[in-house]
């Protein structure tokens, strides 16, 4: 795996995590709801991507889920943020926003001494 690929996946990981937490913060959601939103935003293309992420965030204590009976298939997991997750998201939003502004400034403005 090349260096570029590695960097990209690092970046994508952070962004995906941020997006998922944001979507879940809007209410209890089912994975395919998340996928629909993410697909719209062209952030992920295939559903499989989501499950490892959700599991990892849940294991980190940021998410919790409820089983909900479904009339079309097996019972579904509905995810919501834990207090820790809400805190985490708040931090992310605060830092992430400033980080993004810094990024935009760094990548667009020329060097000062030029």
């Amino acid at each position: 795996m090349g260096n570029l690929e590695n960097t990209q996946s690092q970046m994508r990981k952070g962004v995906l995590e941020f997006c998922i937490l944001s979507i879940i913060s809007k209410g209890e959601v089912y994975p395919s709801d998340i996928i629909d939103e993410m697909k719209e935003a062209k952030l992920i293309v295939v559903e499989g991507t989501l499950y490892p992420l959700l599991t990892r965030l849940k294991n980190a204590g940021l998410l919790s889920y409820n089983w909900v009976e479904s009339n079309a298939g097996p019972p579904r997991k509905y995810y919501k943020l834990t207090p820790l997750g809400q805190e985490h998201l708040k931090e992310l939003k605060k830092h992430g926003m400033s980080w993004l502004t810094q990024l935009a400034r760094l990548t667009t403005t020329p060097l000062k001494n030029e």
């Binding site: 996946s9 994508r12 293309v45 295939v46 559903e47 499989g48 991507t49 499950y51 992420l53 990892r56």
Partner: peptide, 11 residues
Amino acid sequence: MGKPEDFAGAD
């Protein structure tokens, strides 16, 4: 669902 190798990039 996507190819398994696609998952790897996400996590």
